[in-house]
Simulated assay, not measured.
Amino acid sequence: MDVHHAAATALTPRRAAPPAAPMPPLRFRELCETILAEVDRVIDGKAEASRVALTVLLAQGHLLVEDVPGVGKTMLAKTLARTIDCSVSRIQFTPDLLPSDVTGVSIYNQATRQFEFRPGAVFANIVIGDEINRASAKTQSALLECMEEHQVTVDGTSYGLSEPFMVIATQNPIEMEGTYPLPEAQRDRFMARISMGYPDEAAEIEMLESHQSESPLFSIEPVAEASDVASMIESVKAVYVSDPVKQFTVALGRATRTSERVRLGASPRAVLQLLRAAKARAALDGRDFVLPDDVAAMAPAVLVHRLILDRRAAAAGLTVAGVLDALVATVPLPSDGAARLRRQA
């Protein structure tokens, strides 16, 4: 495992930290554009994947990047991490990786005759988990508390993780030999899942031009600090959601649970994370309120990896993405005026 920056977490029992002040809208948008521009310097032709990754970061979620080898999964994670001046750690998941390698372990100090906690790689603002499905289920589960509660509990003591905190995990869905597929409970911890896909011809030619001598990753300089990201997160929290948009989000989640084509629908956690992602998307677009289009646009990234098709639907050749698109089309949209209702003073 590689540590790019020293972790700044104080290893003390978890306690609530005072929230940061929201960032001014103009500064928010300028910083988002700057971060995405830096990522686009390294990741050619994948603007939407970069945008979703930033959206998940600002929505306080975690990202699963799933695709075949060599399409830039780890590169995207590294690049986004380098644009922010914060603590970053990288874990190479392997079958012999232990849970204590992730969370940390208490070691007996003979000099002081006391146990001392040695933090694991998860004590960082951004944790890159490379090939997460190559670790055992026991090691994978070590991330569950970290991702959900932003804390680590070892020997009965809970230690708070750095804020902001984000896990970006990669996995290869093709090469399954010697892997441990993520169970549904663990996949549900990831706010969104994206696939990089192959670049188009123009982007691949541009990649040959820009990467032939050395990777542009090494020229990336931080354009934001951890405190900036914390302030941007507070701005996203302040984005207004009208009652009709909440009803639309819940109706979409319930539609996945009642569909005859879906065996496992979206959990309440999935519906909540869908709304949080929609708020971040609205903020990136320069709005302080959520539209139904924001919810619908984030639904594939947030819900597809959580749904399991009925056997008959799978046997008929249907895909989760196709079934979800059809469900989104069946949920009635609230009126535009109702969706734009602002909070009354």
Rank of each mutant, 00 (worst) to 15 (best):
V295K: 00
N133T: 07
V262C: 08
R306L: 09
V323H: 02
Y159D: 07
V105W: 01
D288W: 06
E38F: 00
D288F: 09
T330N: 13
Y240C: 11
V236Q: 05
S210G: 04
E149W: 09
S242H: 07
S195C: 12
V239S: 02
E38Y: 00
A280M: 06
G322D: 14
V229Y: 02
P199Y: 05
D96A: 10
R269P: 09
A16S: 15
A121D: 09
T12H: 11
C146G: 01
T79M: 11
N172A: 05
G72D: 10
A7N: 15
G197E: 05
L182E: 04
F165N: 04
M298F: 02
L264C: 04
E177W: 00
S210H: 11
L64G: 03
P181A: 13
F165I: 09
Q140L: 05
E225K: 08
P13T: 13
R193C: 08
P99W: 01
G120I: 07
G160K: 07
P13S: 13
A280H: 03
L208C: 14
L97T: 03
P95N: 13
R287T: 02
D44P: 03
L252D: 03
A142N: 12
M232Q: 11
V56A: 08
A137V: 07
K46P: 07
L208A: 14
R281P: 00
D310G: 09
G265W: 04
L54T: 10
V167M: 10
D155N: 15
V328C: 07
A297H: 07
T153Q: 06
M166F: 02
F28M: 10
Q92K: 10
L303E: 03
L80C: 11
L217Q: 04
I128Q: 01
R113M: 15
A315E: 15
P164V: 08
L264F: 12
G322E: 14
V71K: 10
S210R: 15
V241L: 06
M207C: 10
V290S: 06
Y159V: 11
D325Y: 01
I168N: 00
C146H: 00
V68E: 08
H4M: 14
M166Y: 01
A283V: 06
S231R: 09
N109S: 10
L272F: 09
P19G: 12
F289A: 13
R263F: 07
V271W: 00
V295N: 01
K138Y: 04
A37K: 15
V71C: 13
Q92R: 12
I91D: 03
I168K: 00
A6G: 11
S213P: 00
K246L: 15
A59T: 05
A224T: 09
A251N: 13
D188I: 13
L264R: 06
Q186S: 08
H305W: 04
D40F: 02
N133S: 08
V245K: 00
S213L: 13
A59Q: 03
G253M: 04
K73S: 13
S215P: 03
I91G: 02
R113K: 15
E30I: 04
L161H: 01
T258H: 11
V229R: 02
K73L: 14
S267G: 05
V328D: 01
A266I: 07
D200A: 13
L327Y: 03
A203W: 10
A53D: 12
A192S: 14
M207Y: 11
F123W: 05
S89Y: 04
V65G: 02
A339E: 04
V241S: 01
A81G: 02
P216R: 05
R15Y: 07
T34Y: 08
V152A: 05
P24F: 07
A121F: 08
M191E: 10
L208P: 04
